[in-house]
Nucleic acid binder design. Structure first.
Lengths: 249, 249
DNA sequence: GCATGCGATTAACCTCGATCATGACGATTC
DNA sequence: GAATCGTCATGATCGAGGTTAATCGCATGC
């Protein structure tokens, strides 16, 4: 199904069969989009949202000089601009990085879901908050890590996310991004990303060639990027147990 | 009312009287908290959320060395950790910056609201997505602006937000933050924040003394920080004295 | 009176990453 | 075949901002 990867293995909010069917029924059309195409522009009124089925998409802000800051990259299974449902206008552009397959969900369908299925509504809400949690990790990355740490953190994050989508074996994955894309994600120049990639390769942490990442030493890479996957809310029995179940104060 | 400032003057989602009353009724307790106190820790299970009535709060991530990256600051009227309702565990700490008055909303009350009032639910959802939009502006700030631009952008944003809460006249406001706090927000050192503040003062853009910001030239300040308030989704674009109101893209 | 402590300020030094430039390589298009 | 373009690679130079440390102003407390 088109929604198979949506909220897969997320802590406590994976969809019931009926919920998944309802969401699947909410899809109006499916289409393929070529690479580097804009799907929605900042400020535009939206009455539908986009579920990414295949390919890589991104959300970004442009500065005055046309330089671009990516604020999110999206992998198959992501509900790319579900937040447009409550917001109606976006504060950023949305576009494809690679050729992509997308499924369209009209907001009238989401109206119906929010009227009839509060539990599913909460799960959709959760999905948008997961994106916000990733925003926060990106803030940490830009605010507190140096160039090498930023790229290391990004590769770790993407590896875990792709793995939970069944698109990485944990050791290598194809991303289809260029060094310039990584620069726009990590707030660096392409020239410096190139040097960072070389450094990571020479230190035996990972390689990045032709849009393909190979992780050579996952532990070291995670340490270098101060990466802790808790913010991804993935349902992994191996992940560290959550502390302290009592209410605050 | 305690909820008076919540979603005030936000585009298309301000609360109806009945909705506000329902939210007000959902508050279980109110309390005051001293400055620099932690309200919720990362990873902790939460069954209630916090509405900020008075004072300044923040959300932040710590790095390995104890350095801190703020990911949000919250002003009166903000539903600080409403996202804990769907998420249940937070990926960051929540604390007060100044002495604060908070109202507690148990999640069981939010369960009832989501069952009975889909429209209000959508507005609560909107509120959490507004925080995400601010996260994105912060990503832009850290990724694409230099030190001076970051501080300028932060002051502009805070001015507009405080103004919509009725706590700034658009020219000056009291924030209660130190230069070290601004450093943790902008991904800089306190030493460099000090240099930036001096620069902004000498250029006649704004001053920052004893936690009080005075805006001397709003237009220049906004330009320097590439600040465009669209992402705050405020209802009346005319009221904040915002320069450089170029139509969005 | 003095001690203590926090925040703001400033100076000296140094490093990380930006900037500018150039070239190699492969994939197109003509 | 030549020409063009996108991506990757690498060197040289420079400046923004980090690091360290000392000083000052102003509270508060004894």
């Amino acid at each position: 199904m088109l929604t198979d990867r949506f909220l897969r293995d997320r802590r406590g909010v994976s969809l019931e069969a009926g919920e998944r069917a309802r969401l699947e029924a909410a899809i109006s059309t499916t289409s393929t989009v070529e690479a580097r195409k804009i799907i929605a522009r900042a400020g535009e009124w939206l009455d539908q949202s986009t579920l990414l089925v295949e390919g890589i998409m991104s959300r970004y802000l442009d500065d005055r000089d046309g330089l671009r800051q990516l604020v999110a990259i999206h992998l198959p299974g992501d509900f790319v601009d579900l937040h447009a449902y409550p917001l109606k206008h976006l504060d950023h552009d949305v576009g494809t990085m690679t050729p992509a397959t997308i499924a369209i969900v009209p907001h009238v369908e989401l109206d119906a879901i929010t009227e009839e299925m509060p539990e599913l509504t909460r799960k959709l809400w959760f999905a948008t908050l997961l994106d916000a949690a990733i925003h926060r990790a990106w803030l940490f990355r830009l605010g507190r890590l140096d160039a090498i740490g930023r790229v290391a953190h990004f590769f770790c994050e993407t590896n875990v996310r792709l793995q939970s989508a069944g698109l990485s074996d944990g050791r290598q994955f194809t991303l289809g991004l260029t060094q310039a894309d990584v620069a726009e994600i990590c707030g660096l120049t392409t020239v410096h990303v190139n040097r960072v990639v070389r450094h990571l390769r020479e230190e035996g942490l990972c390689t990045f060639r032709n849009g393909k990442v190979e992780i050579l030493d996952a532990a070291k890479l995670a340490r270098r990027g101060q990466f802790d996957p808790a913010y991804l809310y993935i349902d992994d029995p191996a992940s560290p147990p959550l502390p302290d179940q009592r209410p605050r104060r």
